[in-house]
């Protein structure tokens, strides 16, 4: 794009971000403040991820951008176009082909490799923000590894609901030292972060923080011995590719309770369909209202 540097950011800004990234990798899970710039996309729409990607990206990279697991959601399209336009890099929807994957709210189903980097867009990097609104104070809490309040909060859930009621952005401990917000990925994706072969980078533009998880690093979702961490997914098969272990989107098909469950990771789903896997293609109808004597209230085809 005329008049702008490769990947939009000027070199001085990239150097500043690169310095922050190296420190972030050296202190796994610790939020490094950085001089986040105003981007031509709004804050909250991936400016942190974009700045990280722009500072890492090279001409021979292949970029994949997903939002909610899908390559064709409008914001993913918009960000992919931004880099195609400003950096002229190759883009792909194929997880395997990508060298850099920028994501909002999902980790691809396919296991990432050592030669890949995943960049998360982070709206709120501070895992303690609901417990303590002052960032000056949370910074002190991280310095002292003072995380008791978070355990108390989770335990309150267990006493009230019999389980931890956090279903996304579920806090993790990185390398046994820093409490970290994994970004609003579903808790279903949390286990993928543990000992991941790929480097994981996190950018929060509005909050001006960068953090990272090196490859093969311990990432543990907070839990208790008697209440181990567990993930949730809709207990169905994908209606398109029949997958029974992928994260599913619920699509409303009519106004009478009809639902269809399909893979949130569109590339994963298409790859499976190309390999000959096929679902029923059918919507589910509501069986019985929740709370009825019939028990359950789940979905049946």
């Amino acid at each position: 794009m005329n008049g702008y540097n490769f990947a939009y950011l000027d070199e001085q800004t990239k150097r500043m971000i690169r310095r922050a990234l190296l420190k972030a990798v050296a202190i796994p899970g610790h939020q490094v403040p950085f001089g986040s710039r105003e981007m031509p996309l709004p804050y909250g729409w991936g400016t942190g991820g974009i700045q990280v990607t722009a500072s890492v990206l090279g001409a021979d990279d292949t970029l994949k951008v997903i939002d909610q697991g899908a390559d064709d959601t409008t914001n993913a399209v918009s960000i992919r176009r931004f880099f195609a336009r400003t950096a002229g890099v190759a883009t792909t929807t194929d997880t395997e082909q990508a060298t850099i994957i920028q994501t909002r709210h999902r980790i691809p189903e396919k296991k990432l490799r050592e030669d890949q980097i995943i960049v998360y867009q982070v709206p709120q990097p501070e895992p303690l923000f609901k417990l303590e609104s002052s960032r000056a104070e949370t910074r002190r809490m991280h310095a002292l590894a003072e995380y008791g309040a978070m355990h108390v909060r989770l335990y309150e859930d267990i006493t009230r609901f019999g389980q931890v009621a956090i279903s996304y952005d579920y806090p993790v401990m990185v390398g046994g030292r820093f409490l970290m917000a994994p970004s609003p990925i579903p808790a279903f994706d949390n286990p993928k972060m543990h000992m991941m072969p790929a480097l994981q980078l996190f950018g929060a533009g509005r909050e001006k923080r960068i953090y990272a998880i090196p490859p093969y690093t311990e990432v543990r979702s907070l839990d208790f011995e008697d209440h181990p961490f567990r993930t949730t997914r809709a207990p169905h098969r994908c209606a398109l590719c029949n997958a029974d272990n992928s994260y599913l989107d619920e699509v409303v098909t009519d106004d009478r309770g009809g639902r269809m469950f399909v893979c949130s990771d569109t590339d994963h789903c298409e790859t499976r369909q190309e390999a000959g896997h096929a679902g029923t293609g059918e919507a589910l109808v509501r069986e019985a209202p929740v709370g009825s004597a019939a028990r359950g209230g789940g979905m049946k085809p």
């Binding site: 709004p42 804050y43 909610q68 697991g69 996304y168 809709a234 619920e250 929740v290």
Partner: peptide
Amino acid sequence: GFVEHLKLPHYVDFQSELETIRRMR
């Protein structure tokens, strides 16, 4: 930016909430 970003799709998170609530019920 942050207020208006709520217009972006959040259906993955919403789905995780749905499943958690269904499970709890």
